[in-house]
């Protein structure tokens, strides 16, 4: 088992880039005065980011995925996390069989 030098540097490049994006926001806000508008905008960051990550999988992959997304969302307001995952995976498997 070994580490290839090029692979090593590719991984370290990824690690550096990722960490930079993670501290950039911290550094940024320490130089910005927080107005009401910026505060409101930042409050919307969590739902906006999470939604953007899954949107193509949820709504641009197929009818089964879109259907499973709607069913999972309905479950997400009522059930604990592991149950929601079960509902999501289960409904997708059923819909893939039904829709094809």
């Amino acid at each position: 088992m070994s580490i290839d030098p090029t692979t090593l540097f590719a991984i370290l490049g990824m690690a550096t880039a990722t960490y930079l994006t993670r501290i950039a926001g911290f550094v940024l806000v320490s130089h910005v005065r927080m107005g009401k508008r910026i505060e409101t905008a930042l409050q919307a960051v969590p739902p906006a980011v999470l939604m953007s990550v899954i949107a193509p999988t949820a709504f641009a992959t197929g009818y089964a995925e879109a259907g499973a997304t709607v069913i999972t969302a309905a479950a997400a307001f009522r059930l604990p996390l592991l149950a929601v995952i079960a509902v999501g995976v289960g409904s997708l498997l059923v819909l893939r069989v039904v829709i094809g």
Binding site: F9, A10, T18, L20, T21, L42
Partner: peptide, 28 residues
């Protein structure tokens, strides 16, 4: 194979750009 260091670094940067917003929201 062989992997491009530049492409991998830029790709990680791009996928993780959202972290800048996340950090800005989280820091306070």
């Amino acid at each position: 194979d062989p992997v491009s260091i530049g492409v991998m670094t830029f790709s990680a940067l791009l996928v993780n750009i959202r972290h800048i917003l996340m950090g800005a929201s989280f820091a306070p």
